[in-house]
């Protein structure tokens, strides 16, 4: 048991993201309200973004903006990793886009069925099938 905690000592960040991710996953699986599902999706995406950004971190190093001097030798070990930041910059934009489209779909569903509860929507669909 003690070994687990010593190993976790330098890896506590992963545990935090996994907890956050599982909160999002739970909301997506269990909640029947569509807006709550969308919130879960958003939390899930946030955990992924945090995970990537944390992989870029180097203890005690500065932001990846190098000195403005074309001839100065740049030691890459002195700066944190810029690549995950770029990937997550675009991932944030995609998450905003998916959030917008998901909310638009939820609105459309509400307009059609008058509810956002998944069970009621399924009931509606079944009774419609029964009629035809």
């Amino acid at each position: 048991m003690e070994q687990i905690f010593t190993a976790m000592g330098a890896k506590y960040n992963y545990v935090a993201y996994i907890i956050l991710m599982m909160v999002g996953l739970y909301a997506m699986i269990v909640k029947s309200n569509l807006v709550k599902k969308i919130i879960g999706m958003s939390i899930f995406q946030t955990s992924i973004i945090l995970f990537y950004v944390s992989t870029a971190y180097k203890t005690g190093k500065t932001i990846p903006i190098v000195p403005y001097d074309a001839h100065a030798a740049v030691q890459a070990a002195d700066f944190i990793n810029p690549l995950p930041h770029v990937l997550m910059l675009t991932a944030i934009v995609v998450s905003v886009a998916t959030l917008g489209v998901a909310l638009a779909l939820a609105m459309k569903i509400y307009r059609q069925y008058g509810t956002l509860e998944e069970d009621d929507i399924h009931e509606d669909l079944r009774s419609e099938e029964g009629k035809s």
Partner: peptide, 30 residues
């Protein structure tokens, strides 16, 4: 956490950091 020699921090990204001024004259490598 914060390991500078992890695989994510070694292979490609040092190249970006070291060449951003030489290639594009832009200090912000992001």
């Amino acid at each position: 956490f914060g390991d500078g020699r992890s695989p994510a921090n070694t292979y490609l990204s040092p190249h970006f950091l070291e060449n951003t001024m030489h290639d594009a004259h832009v200090p912000n490598s992001v």
